[in-house]
């Protein structure tokens, strides 16, 4: 299927191009909704569709007013601040606990490995609404409901499975004799960890951290239940905006978030290629 051989019959030729067209349409379906909000976010009117001026590419049809609103509106700014305060702390917790555990899990003799793995991965499997419900009940019992730390702890728990998975994946290709070599030359376990093991698994740790970050940064269900007005994050503000008073500022926020995901995607892709190169796998 990769290329059409010169001897292809007319039927094969037709199918080849039909298939390509079909795939093109599906790609369009995947990417169009994300791309369409970018121009719409510059709409000079408060509409959610293209105005005549916009279609005519008239500069008067475009403006930065929704972006201006986002950066001046106290609600949105408060939400942005909260997101920025919550996500990094949750990421830090998830990444440090997760990396240690992944190293522990990759040792050759771990008792109850599959049971432990099942527990550690469970935050990723259980539907968010159930996690949110359970956490709401439990955290209100112990007085964490509606507090900053309640949200941070919950987000950290949700992010750890991603760290475990990515770090474990890099550790699969890790050569154990390097640790033994370091030990035989007199390095203590802590030095070995920071000087030998850490530099090699850093790509896995960073991509795990990015996953944990995006989990917290995008998370809305848990924060909706666990947070109080003081923990209103960006996704929460978007959610209420979409449900109640739909305002075009949401499109500006959405466009900014698309920009963030493009940056994240680029970093991850770079890390993946670097790690594959280091491990002598297929060059990018």
């Amino acid at each position: 299927m990769s290329a059409l051989p010169p001897y292809a019959s007319p039927l094969q030729r037709t199918w080849f191009y039909t298939f390509r067209l079909l795939c093109g349409l599906i790609f369009f379906f995947l990417i169009f909704p994300i791309l369409v909000i970018l121009p719409l976010s510059f709409n000079a009117q408060d509409f959610f569709t293209f105005t005549k001026e916009m279609l005519a590419l008239d500069p008067a049809g475009y403006s930065f007013k929704h972006y201006h609103d986002f950066f001046t509106n106290p609600d949105w700014q408060q939400a942005l601040t909260n997101s920025v305060l919550i996500a990094p702390v949750a990421t830090l917790l998830a990444t440090s606990f997760g990396t240690l555990a992944a190293i522990g899990l990759s040792q050759s003799h771990v008792p109850f490995k599959s049971a432990i793995m099942a527990i550690l991965i469970s935050p990723m499997i259980v539907p968010l609404i159930i996690s949110a419900a359970g956490m709401y009940f439990f955290y209100s019992r112990i007085g964490l409901q509606g507090t900053y730390w309640g949200v941070v702890l919950a987000h950290a728990a949700l992010g750890t499975p991603f760290v475990i998975i990515t770090v474990t994946a890099t550790l699969v290709g890790f050569d154990r004799s390097l640790v033994r070599a370091a030990a035989s030359m007199g390095a203590n376990p802590v030095t070995t960890f920071f000087k030998v093991q850490m530099p090699l698994i850093v790509p896995g740790v960073v991509s795990g951290a990015l996953f944990a970050f995006i989990t917290s940064f995008d998370e809305v269900v848990v924060v909706l239940f666990l947070g109080s007005a003081g923990q209103k994050t960006l996704p929460w503000q978007m959610f209420t905006g979409l449900r109640e008073q739909i305002s075009p500022t949401i499109l500006a926020v959405a466009s900014l978030m698309v920009a963030i995901s493009i940056v994240l995607l680029t970093v991850l892709e770079f890390l993946r290629r670097r790690s594959e190169r280091l491990r002598g796998m297929t060059p990018g």
Binding site: V220, P235, V258
Partner: peptide, 13 residues
């Protein structure tokens, strides 16, 4: 990688 809410708002639009 794009936020779930971004995609949902796109479809709403």
């Amino acid at each position: 990688w794009t936020s779930l809410l971004v995609r949902t708002s796109a479809w709403k639009v």
